[in-house]
Design a binder for these strands. Structure first.
Lengths: 170, 170
DNA sequence: TTGGAATGTCAACAAAGCTGACATAAAATG
DNA sequence: CATTTTATGTCAGCTTTGTTGACATTCCAA
């Protein structure tokens, strides 16, 4: 029944990792890590005259070829007007093809062109390389924990999108 | 000598967690989780008529009271002109106090006022609550892994700032 | 004391978010 | 079948927040 052994939390668990100070460090870690996470793609995008918004569109079009504007919208969580501006430049530049739907002509189905796939590959390769280095340094168990916490941090509808993407292949 | 056992990687380790597909999922998890991470503060900020940039400034001024504009600049990784605009509104609104340095009059030292501390607390409480829930769901070992991977993902100079912040208290 | 370096501010511009208005196609309703 | 309502996507204009360029002040070193 001793309280000094590190199990003084309600429920009998050790909750030292839940102190405000620990949580604050987690918040800052998230902030700084996200900066690292985006820095390599940002450099590449700048070279091509694009921004992070273009990257996101390209990523998810590659991930779900033939997806509609509306579907992309809910995944990205931006307004259609904002997405539209990005898509327009990508279509104009020949990186994305927008095909009018056959069943429902209101919809546009989006595909990467060869050039679009090339840029996607360049971005993805760089971002995966950083992820791979971090994973390798941290080891498999840390990676599992990383993924668990990230998933718990998502809003439910984001988690829904995330899990749907998980099922499909490349 | 069967290759199907999961130890077919060079070096004799199990590197299944480093497949392109795993890395891609990690990338997407990072994207969706960051959205969740920022969603609560964003709601609060909107209520007060501020943006994410204000939150970042408030957070790090609270974390290092008396910090200079230049120091804040390197931590936030934005241009001084961009930061200046944000700081000006915070000073005008009475959330931040900017004192001319005594030793070096070129410098401005930044402090939260009482009102600034109140907003910081509101933002921080919300963000910590989400972090706490995620940590609690995931458990202490997952949290350790989470932190390890995030730190490995940072750029070296960001990691430097991160570790310097860790040392100081609240 | 004078010239350069560091710090911070002002002005103008670009990227990417937002709301509002609108055109077109599909679906629902009479 | 005609008409209204709903869904999807586009165009215009505004806001936030990033950028570079020009500049004032202060410090330091020659």
């Amino acid at each position: 029944m001793a309280e000094g052994g590190g199990t003084g939390a309600p429920g009998g668990e050790n909750l030292l990792f839940l102190t405000d100070e620990q949580l604050r460090k987690g918040i800052e870690a998230m902030f700084f890590a996200y900066r690292g996470f985006t820095s390599d793609p940002d450099r590449i995008l700048e070279k091509h005259g694009y921004g992070r918004a273009h990257h996101r569109a390209i990523h998810f079009i590659n991930r779900s070829p033939g997806t509609t504007v509306n579907n992309l919208l809910t995944i990205l969580g931006v307004t259609k007007q904002s997405l539209n501006r990005v898509l327009r430049t990508l279509v104009e530049d020949g990186l994305v093809e927008s095909r009018v739907g056959t069943r429902d002509k209101r919809e546009r189905h989006l595909y990467l062109t060869e050039a679009g796939a090339a840029l996607e590959s360049e971005l993805s390769t760089a971002q995966r390389a950083r992820m791979r280095d971090a994973y390798r340094q941290a080891g498999p168990e840390a990676v599992a924990g990383f993924r668990t916490v990230l998933e718990a941090m998502m809003n439910p509808d984001m988690r829904h999108h995330f899990n749907r993407l998980k099922e499909s292949g490349s």
